[in-house]
Design a binder for these strands. Structure first.
Length: 781
DNA sequence: GTAGGGTTAG
């Protein structure tokens, strides 16, 4: 089934222009699952065909019950096909049979089929309605749930409770409250529903008030309240409740023990654990995972070994513990020894291997496992994406569709962030379309991923559209937008977003301030930046970290205030790291201060001897002040120390195809056209007064061929190819893995004027929007 | 068919 992969999976990560990847025509690939659906619903239209020959009226009720139970059982085991077969061949159906099909499909994540059965159910009882309502609620489609709810001919307390918990879980506390106030009769589930609506949405004080207003709470609600305090790390309040609650069940004990364990109070946890009257699997597992989460693997293992009847969850917790502490061989030992592996065990191992850089092992486990779920796919895809194999990751998405696995929120999130990594905008847009179709466009995680995708693909306007339409924005949302604007050189827009963020009541965090400061830095807003820097502790209660100092040194340095930058560096309460010195080195390059540049570079080489970018930066600095001997020396030093320059390459997406160029590329099929076009451009540029500078040659070219080769830097090739292939009026989006060199930067400025096109270049540091001879970075990068 | 506690993915 996965042979498609085996052949190609070891290819280098270097995207090759002629490779046949990313020809992603999602729509045209056909969805086997959808075909199956259609087939199923067609045969449903002739339900009596092939049914039992017996006269339906002679079938006993008991026999119908047996059929119904068989349907439920098959559904529970994930065998929708067998359940459907039973349903179609059973001699007589009751509403229970229909309901079993509906709830079974919902259980197996086949929402569309559930809805079809619901629509066809001949006489729907209130349970059918409630099951369907629950389906919408679990799918987080609250507007549809509400529409169904309002259409219900009759509602009982279950209907009301379902709607209530839907709103609660979706974060709509006010709506939940309204439902609660309107419901004609309330049971203990309703009361607990509104209580946990508050708790789950972080409104612990409202919960406490409600809890104090009434005395006859059930144990479940006591437990909820306790868990609420624990989530807020209010261990004392939780313990107070625990000590005076009228009745404690095993959940109460387990909640309290887990609370202590997860907050590092292992001694208290251990004490309660010993006092606990009933120790079930939960109790034991809570202890194991408590020790695991605090890195106490020996203790975890001791408890684990003492457990008499371990279930798969406890095994998985222990395995996760080993893999989180990079002890993959111990994890594997347990995995091999465990009696009944479930899908989570496989997923845990795959995640472990993937996160410990053993992607090949992750891959072979993924192929060995008997059944895969969306988590398995997400784990392996994230593994490839995070280890830099973006194309493999995207290829797996296609494979996942073939396998019939449905995209869910997390696979969408994962897919979008992979698109962002390689700046596959067209693909990202297609995924966006599918996301909307699947009804997942709401939700913070996936929304943030979408936003980041548009930002990183260079489509900042579309990013903003996504941003304003996101119904619930969290800190990450705001930070992504601010940083996005900053990287595109839109400092003022970034600061505007920051100002509106402050009005929402979502407090900025340290990441926000990094975004804000770098917005100021990339736009040259020195005073504004200084003001934010010195007021962040006082005004927003954010502790100033080393990163903020680095931003500030960058800001001052770029603006030419090199002495102030050095002064601040001396004053900062942290030991400067490579990034801090790097900011100073970058500033020295812009302002041609060779002496300061050398001094900074020296410190960087001590701190990060393998950072090839810094050697290149220093060489460029020497070159720009004509110190060619030193440039030569740098090259020798790099060779002696074995520092390898990362080869520079650029890529561009044209009609869903990614084309990659490296310097002096001679493999692209259109190379003659591209080179000819570049020559032509070169003549026009020279007429414009452009002089090719040989400053940045170390970048990726050998010295002898300096001038000749510079014309063929990878970004120039990609830009030329884009102009030739992308219809006029559309921007040309190029991505480069290193910083853009000065010569290319000034050449592309000229090109943008000559061909009258908008050229957007993402380099390793930021975005450059070239338009009409200017760049959005203001030559500041 | 609707509540509370343990493992895996983002």
């Amino acid at each position: 089934m996965h042979g498609f992969f085996h052949a190609n999976r070891c290819r280098s990560r270097h995207v090759h222009s002629s490779s046949s990847l990313l020809f992603l025509r999602w729509e045209r690939m056909g969805d086997p699952q959808t075909k199956l659906n259609r087939k199923a619903s067609r045969s449903l239209l002739r339900p009596e065909r092939g049914t039992n020959k017996k006269n339906p009226s002679t079938i006993s009720d008991a026999e119908v019950v047996r059929w119904n139970m068989a349907i439920s059982e098959h559904m529970r085991r994930g065998r929708c096909d067998l359940a459907l077969h039973h349903f179609q061949t059973m001699p007589r159906r009751t509403s229970v049979s229909w309901n079993a099909m509906i709830s079974g499909y919902l259980m197996n994540d086949r929402f569309d089929l559930a809805r079809q059965f619901f629509d066809r159910t001949p006489d729907r009882d209130i349970v059918s309605w409630n099951v369907m309502l629950g389906g919408y609620v679990r799918n987080r489609n609250l507007s549809a749930a509400r529409a169904l709810f309002d259409r219900m001919p009759k509602k009982d307390v279950v209907s009301w409770n379902t709607m209530l918990s839907g709103y609660a879980q979706g974060g709509y506390v006010e709506e939940a409250r309204e439902v609660f106030d309107r419901m004609p009769d309330k049971n203990s589930i309703s009361w607990n529903g509104i209580l946990s609506a508050y708790i789950q949405n972080g409104r612990i004080e409202s919960a406490r008030q409600l809890f104090d207003s009434k005395s006859d709470w059930e144990t479940v609600s006591w437990n909820s309240m306790m868990a609420g305090y624990l989530r807020k790390k209010r261990l004392v309040d939780a313990r107070y409740l625990f000590d005076r609650m009228p009745e404690r069940d095993e959940v109460s004990w387990n909640t309290m023990i887990t609370g202590y364990a997860q907050n590092g109070e292992l001694l208290e946890a251990q004490k309660l654990f010993e006092d606990s009257p009933v120790r079930d699997v939960f109790t034991w597992t809570a202890m194991v995972s408590g020790y695991v989460q605090n890195g106490m693997l020996m203790e975890a293992r001791r408890i684990f070994d003492e457990m008499s009847d371990k279930n798969s969850v406890s095994w998985n917790a222990m395995i996760a513990g080993y893999s989180q502490s990079r002890k993959m061989d111990l994890a594997r030992e347990l995995f091999d020894a465990m009696p009944c592996r479930n899908i989570s065990s496989w997923n845990t191992m795959i995640t472990g291997y993937a996160q410990n850089g053993e992607i090949d092992r992750a891959w072979s486990l993924f192929n060995e496992m008997p059944r895969r779920d969306s988590i398995s796919w997400a784990a392996i895809i994230a593994g490839y994406a995070q280890s830099g194999h973006s194309e493999e990751a995207l290829r797996l998405f296609i494979e996942m569709k073939r396998d019939g696995e449905r995209m869910n929120r997390s696979t969408f999130t994962c897919c979008l962030s992979t698109c962002a990594d390689i700046a596959a905008l067209e693909l990202g847009k297609q995924v966006h379309g599918r996301l909307v179709k699947a009804g997942y466009e709401t939700g913070c995680y996936v929304g943030n991923a979408l936003l980041a995708m548009y930002c990183k693909c260079g489509s900042i306007d579309e990013a903003y559209n996504v941003f304003i339409e996101m119904p619930d924005k969290d800190v990450v949302t705001w930070n992504t937008m601010i940083t996005g604007y900053a990287k595109h050189g839109y400092g003022r827009e970034a600061l505007e977003v920051f100002e509106s963020m402050k009005k929402t009541g979502i407090g900025p965090d340290d990441v926000t301030m990094v975004g804000v400061l770098s917005a100021c830095s990339h736009t040259g807003l020195v005073d504004k930046g200084t003001e934010y820097f010195y007021s962040m502790e006082r005004e927003y209660g954010i502790t100033t970290k080393a990163q903020h100092y680095t931003c500030m040194i960058d800001l001052l340095g770029r603006a030419g205030r090199l002495e102030d930058a050095q002064l601040l560096m001396k004053k900062m309460p942290f030991e400067p790291d490579g990034a801090t010195w790097g900011a100073l080195l970058g500033a020295s390059r812009i302002h041609g201060d060779t002496k300061l540049g050398e001094a900074s570079a020296k410190r960087i080489f001590e701190l990060e001897p393998d950072n090839s970018g810094m050697y290149v930066l220093l060489s460029n600095l020497y070159a720009s002040s004509g110190r060619w001997n030193d440039v030569g020396k740098m090259r020798l030093i790099m060779r002696d120390r074995g520092v390898r320059k990362v080869p520079g390459y650029s890529w561009i997406e044209v009609q869903n195809k990614v084309h990659t160029f490296s310097v002096g590329d001679s493999v692209h099929p259109d190379k003659d056209k591209i080179y000819g076009f570049l020559e032509e451009l070169d003549l026009k540029m020279k007429r414009d007064g452009y002089v090719s500078s040989t400053k940045m040659v170390l970048h990726d070219v050998e010295e002898e061929e300096k001038e000749q080769m510079l014309k063929y830097h990878s970004e120039k090739l990609a830009v030329a190819f884009g102009i030739l292939t992308i219809p006029p009026g559309r921007p040309i989006r190029v991505i480069k893995n290193l910083r853009v060199c000065e010569d290319c930067h000034s050449a592309i400025k000229h090109i943008s004027m000559i061909v009258k096109r908008l050229i957007i270049l993402r380099d390793s540091n930021r975005f450059h929007h070239f338009n009409n001879g200017n760049c959005s970075c203001g030559d500041y990068w």
